[in-house]
Design a protein around this nucleic acid. Structure first.
Length: 102
DNA sequence: TGTTTGACGGACA
DNA sequence: CTGTCCGCCAAAC
């Protein structure tokens, strides 16, 4: 895969995450599929990992397929989710309730 | 150039 | 339910 395609994928990831409505969530794998790159959930995570701390992207709406937080700093994400009404029960989001479907 | 490391996911015990 | 294992793939060693 060329560097250009990598960049394109990164931009797509930004755009799809930006499209997640307030109060909803999406999984890493889901974002990968939406970007037309199935099996690249880890790369979605890598894109998020290099976001600047002050980004306005709603990265907190991206969780793993178990409805759990994969972010190494869960407290921040938990707070942001709670702030928009996405509640976690026993450390997990009910995907059946909150998962976004475009 | 070979190995390890992740903001992953699904299968299985 | 939890823990383990394996496939995944670019980056960092």
């Amino acid at each position: 895969m060329t560097a250009n395609q990598e960049d394109a994928f990164e931009v797509l990831v930004w755009q799809w995450i930006n499209a997640i409505p307030t109060g909803c969530v999406a999984t890493y794998g889901q974002i990968a599929v939406l970007c037309g790159m199935p099996r690249r959930a880890r790369m979605v995570g890598r894109v998020l990992a290099k976001l600047p701390p002050d980004t306005r992207l709603p990265w907190h709406r991206v969780i793993n397929s178990q409805g759990r937080i994969s972010n190494p700093n869960p407290a921040r994400q938990l707070e942001r989710l709670a702030a928009e009404g996405t509640l976690m029960i026993n450390g997990r989001v009910r995907l059946a309730t909150y998962q976004w479907t475009p």
